[in-house]
Amino acid sequence: MIFKRNALLAVLATGTLALTACGGSDEPAAEGGLNLVSEGNLTVCSDIPFPPFEFEENGEYTGFDIDLMREIATGMDLELVVQDVGFDGLQSGATIAAGQCDIGASAMTITEERQANLAFSDPYYDSLQSLLVPADSDVTGIDDLAGKSVGVQQGTTGETYTRENVPADTEVVAFPSDAEMYAAVQAGNVDALLQDLPVNLGHTEDGAFTIAEKYETDEKYGFAMAKEGSEELVAAVNEQLTAIRDSGKYQEIYDTYFTE
């Protein structure tokens, strides 16, 4: 698949940005047992930037995950509020358990370990891992990383895959986000990056970097919610995901960021 967005954004300021879902009636629908952290709002936490899934453009948060969440909020007659948070706390369940948000939407793979602390929606995206290297690198695959260094994002399945599969003498360097990882490989501080394919593809646009290898890991992304007390919210999100797929809106959003 080909990442269709232009050059990736640099390190962005963190903060909270409210996005208002269009459409719907003037009054929000009855929220019942959704147990939302803010009445009338669907509060979503995401680790930004991580294009093409979440990033900031023209002062607004956007991306594949964010666009899907906007449609879900609209279907639930709620306003969408997006908060930029660290991925480690989000994938561990700590951020949601602290009541900071209703949903985690951050290219998060559904794993057994995460399911111990989080409830997940139905899968909404299948992903591959990949190895990004400079165009003139002699690294053609993961086995060539012997004696070299590779950057990963901490707390991700990419980090897990890397540590389980690189040669024993490979230095694995964990970074908080893709922005720091990419800056490190640009500066020559690491020899390669191993992470989700769509994100690495975005780094190949200027020709300075290339994808050396892809890895099928059977990863599926899901939207994360509280482990306890989120049953109605999970059901509502799944209902909206089905409606978005049936209406063709999912494919429209998908085609905005990817082609196959």
Rank of each mutant, 00 (worst) to 15 (best):
L34G: 00
S46H: 05
N58P: 00
F53N: 15
G99S: 07
M76W: 06
E112W: 01
Q115L: 12
L42N: 06
L36W: 04
G75H: 00
Q83P: 00
F64E: 03
E60S: 13
T111D: 05
V133A: 01
F120W: 09
V82D: 14
T109D: 11
F50Q: 11
Q115H: 04
P49N: 08
A73K: 01
F64R: 05
A98G: 10
L118D: 14
I72E: 01
V133M: 09
L80V: 09
P49T: 11
G86A: 12
Q115S: 15
A73T: 11
A98S: 14
D26A: 15
S127M: 06
S106Q: 05
A116N: 13
E39S: 11
F53I: 14
A98N: 12
E31K: 02
S25P: 12
Y125Q: 14
D84P: 05
D26Y: 04
G23K: 08
A94W: 13
M76T: 07
Q83I: 06
L34M: 11
A29H: 01
D26G: 06
L90R: 05
Y125D: 08
Q100A: 09
S38M: 07
G33L: 15
T95H: 10
G63L: 12
L118Q: 13
G93T: 10
A105V: 12
Q100L: 12
G93F: 06
D67G: 01
A105L: 08
E31C: 01
L68D: 03
A98Q: 08
Q91L: 10
S38H: 03
A107I: 03
C45L: 10
V37K: 06
I96H: 06
G86S: 06
T62D: 12
L68A: 02
Q91W: 06
Q115E: 15
L90N: 02
A73S: 06
L34A: 09
I96Y: 10
Q115G: 14
I48H: 00
T111L: 02
F87K: 12
Q83K: 14
D77M: 12
P123S: 15
M76Y: 02
I48Y: 00
G32I: 05
L36N: 12
T111K: 08
V44Y: 02
